[in-house]
Nucleic acid binder design. Sequence first.
RNA 1: GCCAAAAUAGCUCAGUGGUAGAGCAACGCUCUCGUAAAGCGUAGGUCCGCGGUUCGAAUCCGCGUUUUGGCUCCA
Length: 582
Amino acid sequence: MAQDEQLHKIRHSMAHVMAEAVIEKFPGTKVAIGPAIEDGFYYDFDLPRQLNEEDLESISERMQEIIKEGHEFQRSVVKREEAYELFKKQDQDYKLELLEAIPEGEEVSLYNQGGFVDLCRGPHVEDTGQLNAQSFKLLNIAGAYWRGDEKNRMLTRIYGTAWKNPKELRQYLQRLEEMRKRDHRKVGRELDLFSTHEEAGPGLIYWHPKGARIRLAIEDYWRAEHLKNGYEMLYTPHVGKSWLWETSGHLGFYNENMYSPMQVDENDYYIKPMNCPFHIMIYNTNLHSYRDLPLRWAELGTVYRYERSGVLHGLLRVRGFTQDDAHIICTPDQVEDEILEVLRFSLAMWKAFGFSDIKAYLATRPGEDKSVGDDSAWEQASDSLKKAIEAEGLDYEVDEGGGAFYGPKIDLKIKDALGREWQMTTVQFDFNLPERFDMTFVDHDGKEKRPYMVHRALLGSIERFFGVLVEHYGGAFPIWLAPVQARVIPVADPFNEYAQDVKRKLLAAGLRVEADVSDNRMNAKIRNAQNEKVPYMLIVGEKEKDGDSVSLRRRTGKQQDVMTVEEFIGFANQKIADKEEI
RNA sequence: GCCAAAAUAGCUCAGUGGUAGAGCAACGCUCUCGUAAAGCGUAGGUCCGCGGUUCGAAUCCGCGUUUUGGCUCCA
């Protein structure tokens, strides 16, 4: 803990050193804010001119000098007016604005190092001697709105990373490099999994055959598990008349994410940004008894949402995606059990896909004027969410007031192989739609009552999940997901026919298999298969042909086994069933 | 959407005003090979698009598109 504090001080101090260097290099620069962040720091500047990569170099060099000069970080508490005068004199408008925002009665502290005075709460290291000139690096330049509000002026933000020593910096840079190597956009290209097309519309994903094989494996598993867990499957339309979206309220509160309507027979039809209204239509088709509940209705529903052009990112942020959506419609009595079930189900699913480090975020009621539904329902709902998290022993944080206006929710964040967190699962109560669509069930007493409705997506979106999965495994998928589970490699073309023969047998046994009968040499074929991260390479030549066997080489390298084709089928199917890595 | 940068062969990338290049991949030929790249050859480009400056533009300027890094938002 003390360690983290020290690192935080280093980063925060580094931001000040950077600001000092920038002001020196670019007189007239106005400084905004410069905090420490995860892995580093940034500082926002209003600069007299644009920056480029060379500027980063020279700023960085100056920072190294400043550090070596050994300035002290002097903290002083001053009167508000004093600080005001100081920053007024320097024309530091942003600091003046920040100063005004400090509540009366709170002390105003300044930090001075080498003549650079900053309005700052601190804390900092005592002097630049505690910083290491070789253990920071300026990473990139980006735009950022003053105070994060797009109505404000766009400032220039410089990001840097800083560590205690050069070794830690080196390790961090290696981690960045590893992230670049695993980037799903790069791996997706290399393994021919998916593409997007400028001419055909940004943010829309084209799944290639190999990507589609993985998706099929994901969806097959997903469907089978849902059926086992008492879900029914639905299929619903992709568009709906304006009545549907007016009733649901989406035209009001979700309009900016929806595409313009198309006219059909003088009616406006909207492409769906969500599946829920359709599921409700199915619910409302029939009268429901309390005996029918709970209903668990799932659909791999493809939705389209407008996203601002600047936010699109590979598979992680797109304009068309498939949610692994489901709606649970139940009585108030059933809520607690249902939530617990959903959470258990979700955790089991994550485990199967190779993720076990999971954290929960509980978001509660935003405030009565900003939300619908009565108190007792919100309370019961939040309570059941919390109980479920605790029953499963999950780490969690509460985001007080962070729920949607229509209900509280749990989000799950999963940690990938590189320790990055991704928000995937969401479980949300909805007190709005049952009301708007007048959903009812007939209770014991013969009276119509309002059911509870819970939206949930476990993987979130198939596209995003796939992107995360690619990065988690770096393209080396476990055998049950691998697009090509085995590749048959003949040692020379006289054995092509036998290779094809083996391939046919494996295909018939349900394996995803290819035979490499290109005119490459065997070594090149092995190399290609390795680069494509094919789990099993089956080398066949004279000996194998005679023995009706294959020589198994794993992508992990060394160990080789010779076994008959039948034995290999049994071996591979076992690994697949057990969801082993390889 | 906003700020900045980028876009050259299928991929990765050279090319700073004077005839558009390399490696890999593709295709053809030779070789018939035992666990991470055989050799030779052929073909492949509206240099993102449109407009401008210039005797001449991949290169300079403007507008647009897309991508990347952020801001904001989010599955």
